[in-house]
């Protein structure tokens, strides 16, 4: 589904990311871990063609992301608050995303119904702009919006940060179900090794922009990761 070939990114001569080769097959739940500044967000931004690669290319289902816009219909993401439109209410925002992905208003209402529990009554029908919601609630709205329109690839940067424990557990269930039952390719990054090992089948650790570990999840994975980061 996603092919990374010789991708690198440098800012003013300083290399922040260098990945010779990485392939993520369809339906895989892929976790990216690393310390601050390791290059997680840089990689995701490259996947979404938000920054220009210094070399190499990324293909998404055969489409080179920096050459064509054709990958957009099946790819969705929530990276940070700049993916929210602050002056809309949550509903208006969902409808807007729905419009962009060819999902009608009624279908959106149907789609949102199962999330009532996830939203905990703090997002829908609040008569509040998104910019006035708390950080956690903004994140919930952003994550759910990224699920609209049955995307084949979902990219989430730090989805567990700022969420309360109940929501974290619900989100983990949701992500697992999406990848197992609907063959959605899920890419998440996190600082929390537990969450990542919980959700993902494959975990990649990066450090200074380079891949240090590439693990299929087993019983020993968490331990191995903890040892890697304990220095």
């Amino acid at each position: 589904m996603i092919n990374i070939e010789n991708i690198s990114k440098s800012y003013k001569g300083v290399q922040v990311l260098n990945i010779p080769e990485l392939t993520i097959p369809k339906g895989q739940s892929f976790g990216l871990v690393g310390n601050n500044g390791a290059g997680k967000t840089t990689l995701f931004s490259l996947l979404l063609d938000l920054i220009e690669p210094s070399s190499g290319q990324i293909t998404n289902n055969g489409v080179a992301v920096h050459l064509s816009e054709d990958w957009k219909p099946w790819t969705s993401a929530f990276i940070d608050e700049s993916f929210l439109i602050g002056y809309l209410t949550a509903e208006e925002y969902f409808y807007f995303i729905g419009d962009l992905r060819g999902v009608s208003k009624n279908e959106i209402d149907e789609f949102l119904a199962p999330f009532e529990d996830f939203f905990h009554g703090e997002i829908l029908n609040q008569k509040k702009y998104l910019r006035d919601l708390s950080k956690g609630n903004q994140k919930k709205a952003g994550i759910v919006a990224a699920l609209i329109g049955k995307p084949e690839i979902i990219i989430l940067d730090e989805p567990f940060a700022n969420l309360d424990p109940t929501t974290q557990i619900k989100l983990k269930k949701l992500l697992k179900q999406l990848s197992e039952e609907e063959q959605v390719t899920i890419l998440i990054s996190s600082h929390d090794l537990m969450h990542v090992t919980d959700v993902c089948e494959r975990i990649v650790a990066i450090e200074k922009g380079e891949i240090q570990k590439d693990l299929e999840k087993t019983q020993a994975t968490l331990k191995e990761l903890e040892e890697f980061f304990e220095r």
């Binding site: 979404l48 063609d49 938000l50 957009k72 990276i79 700049s82 439109i85």
Partner: peptide, 14 residues
């Protein structure tokens, strides 16, 4: 500008 990243990665042709 506040949500330009969304506009650029969502399913929106320029």
């Amino acid at each position: 500008s506040e949500y330009y990243k969304l506009m650029m990665s969502q399913n929106i042709p320029y």
